[in-house]
């Protein structure tokens, strides 16, 4: 009981501190996000997401710009960015999921990288094509970006 209360208080504090910019970042053209309540108190790292909500297209080579330039946004939505595809899962908060790849991979940066490179190895019949032709460094950058989407 007290643990739950602590969690609620923690969430409230976090929302006061970060929530306003977070909502603003999701606003353009999209409905309000259904907040997936994090299992642990989320720690927002220094992600581009919260730094400048009006210009999500940040520096070339960043995780988001690689995500968009390689066409991931044609299938996936990340609210507050150009990515508004509906074929694949909404990734707006993918970094806070308990597991990824239909539950077969832990939610870690390394797992994201492995899934992006060869999704078919983890999820037979997956609709997503493999992106293992991308340089490993770019896959790592995208993985870091996805993990940071809390």
């Amino acid at each position: 009981m007290s643990a739950n209360a602590g969690l609620l208080v923690g969430c409230a504090f976090w929302f006061l501190a970060h929530g306003s910019s977070w909502v603003a970042a999701e606003e353009p053209g999209h409905r309000q996000a259904k907040v997936v309540e994090p299992l642990i108190e989320p720690m927002i790292p220094d992600t581009p997401q919260s730094s400048n909500p009006t210009a999500p297209q940040d520096s070339p080579g960043s995780g988001l710009s690689l995500f968009l330039s390689n066409g991931c946004g044609a299938c996936h939505t990340i609210r507050g960015t150009e990515a508004c595809g509906t074929i694949g899962p909404d990734l707006s908060h993918v970094g806070s999921r308990s597991a990824i790849g239909a539950g077969v991979l832990p939610n870690t940066e390394e797992a994201f990288a492995r899934f992006v490179a060869r999704p078919d190895l983890f999820k037979p019949g997956v609709k997503m094509p493999a992106f293992d032709m991308l340089p490993q460094t770019e896959i790592q950058t995208i993985a870091r970006y996805l993990k940071a989407l809390q």
Partner: peptide
């Protein structure tokens, strides 16, 4: 917009825009 019900992504997602991968 693609054809979402048949899992066809929008062509523009990769092929339109100067910020896209230059190999597309």
């Amino acid at each position: 917009a693609g054809i979402p019900e048949r899992n066809v992504p929008a062509c523009d997602g990769c092929h339109i825009g100067s910020d896209k991968n230059p190999i597309y």
